[in-house]
């Protein structure tokens, strides 16, 4: 489809039961595709920060944004897609390793990806890697031939470089 690209949306929501459910229900109902979703506390007590990576053209993303705003708990939606973004994801990867392959894997992981080995068992290694999602994708592709047993990814979080901020103060939101 023309104009379809990845957008990263930062969504500040009130930290109340059922909020995730509402957001996901909206995406499901309207057929919006979500690549990843990460949620955690924000700098403001009472506000959670969701980072959504969605696929779509500008019009779809505009619809997503407007529909999100219709949810009562959604305080602010910012499309932070662009150059100026720091994006990070954490992954834990359990890969098969034996005496013959262990050295290769460890070298690859630490030299190329600056990832860490956080567990070593006789026939497996657990790799911890952080970085943009693409970096994690590429690490996984590279070590796949060794035999991946498990992958756990957090989904992407993002923040803009410099002094720009998507934050709101709850008092501002009320005023």
């Amino acid at each position: 489809m023309e104009g379809v690209r990845r957008h990263t949306l930062v969504v500040l929501v009130e930290d109340r039961p059922g909020v995730m459910n509402r957001v996901m229900s909206l995406f499901r109902q309207r057929g919006f595709n979500v690549d990843s979703i990460a949620v955690g506390h924000s700098e403001q007590p009472g506000l959670s920060r969701m980072t959504l990576v969605v696929q779509g053209d500008d019009r779809t993303v505009e619809q997503v944004t407007k529909q999100l705003y219709k949810l009562l708990e959604v305080i602010k939606v910012t499309d932070v897609t662009g150059e100026n973004l720091i994006q990070r994801e954490l992954a834990l990867v359990k890969v098969a390793a034996n005496e013959r392959t262990r050295g290769d894997i460890m070298r690859l992981v630490s030299e190329v990806y600056r990832a860490r080995i956080v567990d070593a068992a006789p026939d497996t290694l657990v790799i911890e890697v952080t970085g943009p999602s693409e970096k994690i994708d590429s690490l996984i592709t590279l070590i796949r031939p060794y035999g991946i047993k498990e992958v756990a990814r957090t989904g992407c979080v993002a923040i803009e470089r410099g002094s720009g901020s998507v934050a709101v103060r709850v008092e501002d939101a009320v005023a």
Binding site: V13, E14, Y69, L71, L72, E73, V74, I75, V170, A173, V174
Partner: peptide, 9 residues
């Protein structure tokens, strides 16, 4: 009654 305050509305 108190004034209705809804952050996101």
């Amino acid at each position: 009654p108190e004034p209705v305050q809804l952050l996101g509305y």
